[in-house]
């Protein structure tokens, strides 16, 4: 499966950010990356979503059961 290499290769210039060839620390091959990208953000979505949801619920609980319970303020 190629990534539509054809017409894009021509106008593609190597940005300074990508690892220089022969870089030992980043041996990620495109095949591995492409395979991983099949499922990637789902885990982060679930984790970040759960964390944020927990935060909002905890905030709501404190707001209603502790703050509002302690009487008005103005």
């Amino acid at each position: 499966m190629n990534f539509g290499l054809g017409e894009f290769m021509s106008n593609f210039d190597r940005s300074s950010d990508s690892p220089p060839p022969g870089d030992t620390l980043d041996p990620i091959t495109d095949a591995a990356l492409e395979d991983v990208l099949k499922t990637v953000p789902q885990g982060a979505f679930a984790l970040a979503g759960a964390a944020m949801g927990l935060l909002v619920l905890a905030w709501l609980a404190v707001y209603v059961f502790i703050f509002l319970a302690r009487g008005p303020i103005s």
Binding site: L33, V36, L37, V40, P41, G43, A44, F45, L47, A48
Partner: peptide, 9 residues
């Protein structure tokens, strides 16, 4: 989320 996804990779 973005760093979570990076770590997930």
């Amino acid at each position: 989320f973005t760093i979570g996804a990076s770590m997930e990779i």
